[in-house]
Simulated assay, not measured.
Amino acid sequence: MRVDIWSDIACPWCYIGKARFEAGLAAFAQRNGNHDVEVVHRSFELDPKAPAATDLPVLDMLSAKYGVSRTQAEAMEARVADAAAGEGLDYRSDRIHGNTFDLHRLLHLAKAHVVQDALLGAFYRANFAEARPLADPAVLTGIAVAAGLPADEVARVLADPGAYAQEVRADERAAAELGATGVPFFVIDRKYGISGGQPAEVFRQALERAHADGAVRVLAAGEAEVCGDEGCAVPGA
């Protein structure tokens, strides 16, 4: 069984959704023994026009994007932080909003070295739990090397804007062809599409169904939170 997951490091519901999916996957594995599940992370940029080098605080970005006061933006972030805490995740609102293209290119390098999931998790922690400046090549390099990538290959990719660029664009085209307009977006064996940061039980049930039969079904987003071109859903907003 294979699960393709489209996400962006800047997406809080991708961060939360990853934890929920992993909980659902663990429950599925407990019920189905050692059935192998391959997980492939795919690229999706929420803000491809964001500058590569930036010092724009996320709260300022939210205020401008939604036309709300800083106090209202803080309240929005607090509700997302509560959702993250419910999954045992730390969440900070003093992070910087910026371009994620280089991070996606490094994730494709990580896929070639079979450490993609580890690097994505490290990027999420660095962004949401630690508010580290991910536009800084030195910070990116440190995170990538700690996740298992060779330092010389990381340096090569960061120095060459074309490295893995086609792979990132191919992922984004595939998402568009599947009709994905927001992330996280999960596809199980090209049979089940799941949009948004669904509860762990939804993921477990979808894995069970895909394992049991070959019918093509789509699980709609429903009330699940997603991030898209218009921004990220906020609980209780």
Results as ranks from 00 to 15, higher is better:
1 M>A: 10
2 R>W: 07
9 I>M: 12
12 P>Q: 12
16 I>F: 03
16 I>P: 02
20 R>M: 04
22 E>Y: 02
23 A>W: 00
26 A>E: 06
27 A>N: 03
29 A>D: 02
31 R>N: 05
33 G>P: 00
34 N>G: 12
38 E>C: 10
42 R>M: 07
48 P>T: 07
53 A>S: 14
58 V>L: 10
66 Y>K: 10
68 V>Y: 01
68 V>K: 03
71 T>H: 08
73 A>T: 07
80 V>T: 14
81 A>E: 05
82 D>L: 15
84 A>C: 03
86 G>L: 04
86 G>P: 05
88 G>E: 04
89 L>G: 12
90 D>E: 15
91 Y>W: 11
97 H>D: 09
102 D>E: 10
107 L>A: 15
111 K>M: 12
112 A>R: 11
115 V>H: 02
117 D>M: 09
123 F>D: 02
125 R>D: 13
134 L>C: 12
135 A>C: 06
138 A>Q: 08
139 V>H: 04
140 L>W: 05
150 P>C: 08
152 D>I: 06
152 D>R: 07
159 A>W: 04
160 D>V: 12
161 P>S: 14
166 Q>P: 07
171 D>A: 13
172 E>T: 06
173 R>T: 12
177 E>D: 15
178 L>S: 13
181 T>E: 13
184 P>C: 06
188 I>R: 10
189 D>E: 14
197 G>V: 02
198 Q>G: 03
204 R>V: 03
205 Q>L: 12
208 E>L: 11
209 R>P: 00
209 R>S: 09
209 R>A: 11
210 A>L: 09
212 A>K: 13
212 A>W: 06
212 A>Y: 07
215 A>N: 10
224 A>R: 09
230 E>K: 10
236 G>N: 05
